[in-house]
Design a protein around this nucleic acid. Structure first.
Lengths: 348, 348
DNA sequence: GTGAAAGCGCTAACAC
DNA sequence: GTGTTAGCGCTTTCAC
């Protein structure tokens, strides 16, 4: 067979092959002796395929060690089964529970999370959104409701379902799950007033949502006829140290402060720590309320009163929204107010 | 020209179109009056294209509001610019700083993070890995070095660069950045011995890495001729409450404990809190050492001694590894030991 | 520096 | 239930 040049050589490929050399669905189909599309159906919609074929395909997959290529599937079907989430930051405890629940709820339904961090700067969010939309996720989960005009334009033009979280607004981009920060501020102020505290203070992060809680808190205090609330703004991230420093500042000026509302439990722990270091009795002389109800709040000594936000429920609801949209289900209620609860403990 | 039926009508499409209707690179190319491949080059490798063409393409992109489709690009080029990371859990403070730095370092280089949570169960990791590999990321960042045989097989067969983190091993799958948990346990024990403590205890999470620190700690204590270390294992996640409970248990049995090494700062804060509640003087009667050096450790009262791990450096190094591999650069050192530092503060 | 052709690996649409 | 065909939107290869 090697004496002369073969008369009909296999036509030489005109160009080099490109493939990664990996096992493809075509290989599986060939081994199972079916058409590629049938192999595809056997994997994606097994009920559309006869049991024998299903079996043969399953065996071929195992024999070849085939792992599906979702990228190719996504391109062909225009469904990536990827969902993007954007949070300000991952260091810090705030968004962990939401992301955890979101990731899990998505994974259960066959979706994967893509994560981005916007920092607390608009321009970063815009660039990130561009990178994200370029990947054609089936949904985008965003933190907060404040967007640059450019971001709104990009999101709307993309046609991708968007879920805003951690806040409420009368004009959501699309879907929304959150709670009212103004109501939180109001509720905490009223609570402290009812407990007879008059010299109130706020230690707040400098992000928009903290400021909304702070403003509502001050307003409610004013409506109750209290002296002006003293406000200390601390830069992100809010830490124990900033809490200690804030209480120092409060102690050095004006009449003795009787209650502090902190925009995170870590800040509150700082206030508690500094109070202890100064021999200031909590709650007798000073009441402290945190925000977030981190798992450590309940077991501090004294236990910390805090505003509980159900981050996990927020994550699950966001996942539900996105998946419902991606799978074409009707969504009657596009806004979910998760509310909050003020948990009273030893620190008040 | 419009008097009769055109002799050569555009051939009617034989089937319905599928496209999403979105603007594609072809549209951009047409508007810029160049071939699609030229438009592609103008966006990806602008230096390969004349300034005029670059300009026309840029204008066309802006005019049409074009957003590139990375999925299609990934399929054609076999480079997704997606990197997967798998952590046990997102709730809890441990992996935040690493993920934050990883995400940022990747974003700077044009890569996007895909996130998965394995829980602390092997089978979940296997399923997750399958979902991840199906998305063809350019790299996979994993937590720890213990994998099921199935996971190893999948990863190796995929040919995707893998970075293991948060640990060391003589037999990494591929790339590795971490530190020695045994060395940590050893160092903390020695430190306490030198401070004259003899009745030692460990409060450890029940994950593999905590147990390795614990074992080395016990061994070092034994070598120093100390009485047996009392060990309390707590289930994940490690919380303040578990720390309080652990100290209660320790106080109820045996001789008075003189030093506790906790496998997280939150556990240590629990021990500190319970000690305070019981009137146990820290550090006079009881020394406490944490792990992780969360940002609150330094500002507690007393300040908490802890083992500092540079999670951000770990994230940056992992990003560097993955990107170097994805871009075909040579990697001379495939293992990076980041070490740790034992930070002495008021609690010891 | 620019372009034509040929896929990447998969699935929607339409037949049978 | 199964197969044929024709792409999804991009980039590789090769040619000028």
């Amino acid at each position: 067979m090697a004496t002369t040049a073969p008369p009909n050589p296999a036509p030489a490929p005109k160009r080099a092959r490109r493939g990664s050399g990996a096992v493809t669905l075509h290989d599986v189909a060939r081994l199972a002796a079916v058409a590629p599309i049938t192999a595809s159906r056997a994997l994606n919609t097994p009920e559309q395929v006869s049991p024998e074929v299903r079996q043969r395909v399953t065996e071929a997959v195992a024999a070849l060690g085939y792992v599906r290529n979702h990228q190719a599937g996504a391109l062909a079907s225009a469904r990536s089964r990827l969902v993007a989430a954007v949070v300000p930051t991952l260091s810090g405890p705030v968004f962990g529970p939401m992301l955890q629940a979101l990731t899990e709820a998505l994974a259960e339904r066959g979706y994967q999370l893509m994560l981005g961090q916007s920092g607390y700067v608009d321009s970063r969010e815009d660039a990130l959104l561009d990178a994200i939309i370029g990947r054609r996720p089936d949904g985008i989960v965003l933190t907060g409701v404040e967007r640059s005009p450019e971001a709104r334009r990009l999101l709307l033009a993309s046609g991708i379902p968007v879920v805003e979280t951690w806040d409420l607004t009368p004009a959501p981009l699309d879907l929304l799950v959150g709670f009212s920060h103004a109501d939180v501020g109001h509720a905490v102020a009223q609570f402290l007033v009812q407990r007879g505290r008059r010299q109130l203070a706020v230690v707040a992060g400098d992000d928009e949502r903290s400021r909304r809680r702070e403003r509502a808190f001050c307003q409610a205090a004013a409506e109750a006829g209290l002296p002006a609330v003293r406000v200390i703004r601390v830069p992100a991230p809010t830490t124990l140290k900033r809490g200690r420093q804030a209480l120092c500042q409060l102690c050095e000026s004006g009449p003795a402060v009787e209650a502090v509302f902190c925009s995170s439990d870590l800040l509150a722990l700082g206030v508690l720590t500094e109070a202890q270091a100064r021999g200031l009795a909590v709650p007798a002389a000073l009441a402290v309320v945190g925000f977030g109800d981190q798992d450590f709040a309940a077991d501090l000594n004294p236990a910390l009163s805090s505003v509980r936000i159900d981050g996990q429920a927020m994550g699950r609801q966001a996942a539900q929204f996105v998946v419902d949209r991606a799978e074409g289900r009707d969504i009657p209620e596009r806004v979910v107010d998760l509310g909050f609860s003020l948990i009273e403990r030893g620190s008040t």
